[in-house]
Structure formats: structure tokens, C-alpha cells
């Protein structure tokens, strides 16, 4: 395990923001750390970076205890927390050079990073004049600068355009598959990490509600019967009268939890016989986004 916490808890005053978290992040994984606003993601990340002092529980990174091996551990971590920390009166390159000096990294590496995040042309522009997405790119370059084993990124695609999001995603996948790095990435959108994450942790109100591989997450997703027809509201009421539990209605379709093939046939017959023309009826797996909402709302 690259990151492993046990019973990790943290309070701001008397508000408990992180509740007994036990994170397990395997080596070589892209771990999507998901949760709605205010769930405690950033706070957890600050705990992992030793920026906040752990109230209770333990944190081990690279199998070493964090508090007592702080410098050794941090030298293998690149991080980006919330808005990237950038000196606005310095240019993009100066920002990187400044950090390179502290980390004893060569100028060549700085130029590589600028090229990697497509900031070469803006390298000598004041970072204060960068757009939101450019600042974010610079933040990612800063995190990657020391070529760390573990990247901890707090909503890194915040403010990036679709192209930028895809680039970051591909970059992270490349880092993990080709360079054997580990990525811990937080987001409030499952869809955003769904395509790259190998593992997922879902947190809400400080509690870890789900943790496992992305396959485990798909496995617990409940299949549904989706019926396409007109007059969905009437049809839904009709089905409810006949004891079916309609869980979702839109303008042109409705969904019922799937139980068996016979159930699907019954629904079809019932609707057709009573004047509701069924355009299509099929079994679907709830998408992960809905699953995420379910998990975070039922808690």
C-alpha cells in the first residue's frame, strides 16, 4: 500500500470533519477520492501531507509513519491543493525555477514541465495574467517537478477546458502505466475520474462510504428495467397501482428495479394491453454517477 490510514479523524473546533477514515491506496493505482462539496476531501489531503495535525488515527505512506518520516515521505510526493499556490508577480517559469531551487531540480526539468503542460509560449508571462486553466496547468507542473512516486491532486481539472481535462487524464494514465507512479486524485464528479480510476473511495460528511476497485463499484450497481414510451407520468401511476416500484421518470422513459426476466415481460404486456405503446424495454446497469449520488444521499 502506498497510502494506508487507520481510524483517521480530524476536528475543526467541535465539528468533526474527518471520521475514522481507513484509506487503502495500492501502488500503481489511480485512486479517485470522491465526495460532494464539504465532504472533507481537502481536509483529508492536508492530513496526508502533514499540513494538518492528525487528531486520532495513523497515516502510513510508503509503509512509513508520516509524522516521524515527514521529510523522507514528502520528498516522494507531488501535490496540488485546491487553487494552485503561485506567486502572481513572477512568471510561470520563475515560479517553477523558484521551486526547482528549493528541490534542487535542473532547469532542463523545468523546461520539460513547461512543455508538458503546454505553457512554453506563456513561460515568461506573469502568472497573475494567466487564465484559470493556465494557473491550474502551472500547478500541475509544480506538482510533477520533482518526479515524485506519489501524486496527490485535489481537483486538478478544476477550470480546465475539455481538451485540458483529457490531456491531464492521459498524462496521469501514462504516469501510472509507464512510470509506475501512484495517483491520488480528489473530485466531486465521478464521471471525471471514472475513465481513469482503478480504485475509488467515496466520502461524505467525513465518512468513507465505499472503498474498492472500480469493478467492485460497478458490481454493486443495481440493474434496472428502462421503458421508453410516451405519457410517462400516466404510465408510471398505472404501474404503481399494479405494485411496481417506479424509481425514475423522465419525459420519454421510466425505470423500475430489475428483478427477473419474467418481471420485464409482465411490465411489457401490462403496458401494451392497457394502451401504452412501448417503444423499447431493456435492462440497464445504473450508471456510476447515479450510484455515487445514491451512496452519498442514502447515508
Amino acid at each position: 500500500m502506498v497510502i494506508s490510514t487507520e481510524g483517521l479523524s480530524f476536528n475543526f473546533g467541535n465539528q468533526q470533519v474527518v471520521k475514522s477514515l481507513s484509506l487503502q491506496v495500492p501502488k500503481g493505482s489511480i485512486y479517485g477520492f470522491l465526495g460532494p462539496n464539504g465532504a472533507g476531501k481537502t481536509t483529508t489531503i492536508k492530513l496526508l501531507l502533514n499540513l494538518l495535525k492528525t487528531d486520532q488515527g495513523s497515516i502510513h505512506i510508503f509503509d512509513k509513519e508520516l509524522q516521524s518520516n515527514r521529510v523522507a515521505i514528502l520528498s516522494e510526493i507531488g501535490s496540488l491543493i485546491e487553487q494552485p499556490a503561485i506567486y502572481l508577480h513572477l512568471s510561470g517559469k520563475e515560479n517553477l525555477m523558484n521551486r526547482a531551487l528549493l528541490l534542487r531540480v535542473s532547469e532542463q526539468r523545468v523546461d520539460e514541465m513547461l512543455a508538458l503542460v503546454h505553457l512554453k509560449d506563456a513561460a515568461h508571462k506573469k502568472a497573475g495574467k494567466y487564465s484559470l486553466g493556465m494557473k491550474q496547468r502551472l500547478g500541475i507542473a509544480l506538482a510533477l517537478l520533482s518526479d515524485p512516486q506519489l501524486l496527490i491532486l485535489d481537483e486538478p481539472t478544476n477550470g480546465l477546458d475539455p481538451n485540458g481535462i483529457i490531456e491531464v487524464r492521459e498524462l496521469l494514465i501514462r504516469l501510472v502505466t509507464q512510470h509506475n507512479k501512484t495517483v491520488f486524485i480528489s473530485s466531486h464528479l465521478l464521471a471525471e475520474v471514472e475513465r481513469m480510476a482503478t480504485h475509488v473511495g467515496i466520502i461524505d460528511k467525513g465518512e468513507l462510504l465505499f472503498q474498492g476497485s472500480i469493478k467492485d463499484l460497478e458490481a454493486i450497481s443495481q440493474p434496472q428495467v428502462q421503458v421508453e414510451l410516451e405519457n410517462t407520468v400516466d404510465a408510471a401511476n398505472f404501474l404503481k397501482k399494479h405494485g411496481f416500484n417506479v424509481i425514475d421518470i423522465s419525459d420519454n422513459s421510466l425505470s423500475i428495479p430489475y428483478t427477473s426476466k419474467t418481471q420485464m415481460g409482465e411490465i411489457n404486456t401490462l403496458l401494451n394491453k392497457n394502451g401504452y405503446m412501448v417503444y423499447s424495454i431493456h435492462k440497464i446497469h445504473k450508471d456510476l454517477e447515479k450510484l455515487f449520488l445514491d451512496i452519498t444521499q442514502n447515508a
Binding site: 492536508k46 501531507l49 502533514n50 499540513l51 515527514r70 521529510v71 523522507a72 515521505i73 514528502l74 520528498s75 510526493i77 501535490s79 491543493i81 487553487q83 499556490a85 503561485i86 506567486y87 502572481l88 521551486r99 528549493l102 528541490l103 509544480l142
Partner: peptide, 18 residues
């Protein structure tokens, strides 16, 4: 204030420096 303004305390304190 340089560090407050740029919000760089967090990144300074997450560098591998005591």
C-alpha cells in the same frame, strides 16, 4: 504577506524541507 497572498504556505510546508 507574499506567502499569504499567493496561498503558498501550504505548498512551502508540503515540500520535503523541515
Amino acid at each position: 504577506s507574499i506567502e499569504h497572498k499567493a496561498d503558498t504556505w501550504k505548498s512551502l510546508f508540503s515540500l520535503p524541507i523541515a
